[in-house]
Simulated scan of single mutants.
Amino acid sequence: MFFSIIIPLYNRPQEIDELLDTLTRQTYSQFEVLVIEDGSVNDAKAIVETYADRLDIKYYFKENAGQGFARNYAFERALGDYFIIFDSDILVPADYLETVRNYLHEHQLDAYGGPDAAHESFTPVQKAISYAMTSPFTTGGIRGNKKHVGQFHPRSFNMGVSRKAWEKVGGFILTRLGEDIEYSIRIHENGFKIGLIPEAKVYHKRRTSFSQFYKQLHFFGRARINIYKHFPKELKLVHFFPAIATVGMIGTILMNFIYPPLAYILDFMVLLYFMLIFFHSWSVNKFLKVAFLSIISSFIQLTAYGLGFIQDLFKRVVFGGNRK
C-alpha cells in the first residue's frame, strides 16, 4: 500500500519543519508527502527543500483558497492508494504508517480517523488544551474514542481517505467551518465504510496560548451550525451541551445578584465540576501546573464553543441567515 500524505500550510514554516522531521523516522517507507502552500506570505519552500534527500516530497504553491481546497489540489496530484491528511501542527509517531497499513489490511475501511494526544515535549498550556479537548468532563471523551454519538466523523488533523472513495465522492466542497465533517458525511452517504483506528494517534499541538485556543473553539462552535445547514439530521442533543453549560454559568453569575440563596447551590455545583476536572487532569498528566491550567482550558473549551454555537444558531437559523 502506497500512501500520499497531504499537508496544507498557511504561514507556519516552523510547524512543517517539526512535522516533516517526524516523517523521516517512519518505520513504513512506502509514502510520498505533498505540501500545499495556500498563498502564504511566510512560506516554507526553503524548509521543505531541505528534506528532499530524506523524503519523497513535493512542494506546491497556490493562491489562498482555504485548507479544504488546498487538500483538493493535492488529491488531484497524489499518486497513493490512500490519502492521509494531516494538519501542520502535529507530530507523528514513528510507527504511525505501519499501524495504519496493518489495520487496513485486516479491516476494510474506505476512510478513517485517528485520535490525538499531548506529547511530552508540549508546554503545560498545550497539555492543558489537549486535556480539555479529550476529557470526559468537556467533550465527553468521545474524540478518538470508539464510543461516539452516531456515525464516526474523522477530523482533518488525522484523517485518511482511499483513492476509490475520492474518485467517486470527489473532494471537499467546503474549505472551512466543518469541512471535514461534511466530507465524511458524503463519504458515508455514498456507501463507503468509515471507522476509527484507535492506535493511529498523533501528537496535536493545537494552539500555544489560551487566546488562540478561544478563537479556534469559537470557530468550531460556528462550524457545527454550518454542518447543520447542510445536514440538519447531524445536529444532535449532545452538540447543545457546551451552549447549555455556557448559559448555565452566565446564569449562575447573575443569580448571585438576583437570588443569593439559589446562587450558593449553583456556585457549589460549578465549583464541584471544576474540582473534578482538576483532580482528573492531575491523575492523567501527573503535573500540578497542568491540572490548574486544565481548569482554564476546560472553561474556554465550553464557553468559546458554546458562544460560537449560539452566535451562528441565532444568526443563521433563528433569524434565517444563509451564509455558508
Rank of each mutant, 00 (worst) to 15 (best):
S294W: 06
A304M: 09
Q301E: 12
L288D: 00
Y259D: 12
I265E: 08
I227N: 12
F278H: 12
E120C: 00
F279V: 12
V92Q: 00
M249A: 08
F220C: 13
I16Q: 04
R206W: 14
V125R: 08
S130A: 14
G141T: 08
V125H: 02
E76T: 10
F231P: 07
V270M: 09
Y273R: 11
P124A: 09
T303K: 11
F292D: 03
A44H: 02
K289S: 07
D110I: 04
R54D: 14
P115R: 03
H119E: 07
H107Y: 11
P242T: 02
N42S: 11
Y10I: 13
F210I: 08
K62E: 07
F152G: 03
I85F: 04
R163G: 06
R25G: 04
K58A: 11
D53S: 15
T138F: 10
Y305W: 11
Q126I: 06
T134W: 00
V33R: 11
L235M: 14
I296M: 08
E49N: 06
L313A: 09
R316G: 05
D116T: 01
V100K: 02
R316Y: 14
I36C: 04
A245L: 11
I57T: 11
A46R: 10
I258N: 03
N64Q: 10
D38S: 07
F69S: 06
R77A: 04
I7R: 01
N190F: 10
D21Y: 13
S294P: 05
P242R: 06
M1P: 04
P260V: 05
T123N: 06
S298I: 05
F231H: 15
R25F: 00
V247W: 09
I197G: 06
A291W: 01
K146S: 10
Q212G: 15
E98P: 00
G68F: 04
S209P: 11
I85H: 05
M1W: 02
F210E: 03
S297E: 09
I244Y: 04
L55Y: 09
Y73G: 00
Y273C: 08
L266S: 14
I187C: 07
N102Q: 13
V169I: 12
M269H: 01
D267K: 10
R176H: 10
G39W: 10
I310L: 15
I244S: 01
L272Y: 14
I129F: 02
K215G: 13
A118C: 13
H119F: 09
F287V: 07
F75I: 05
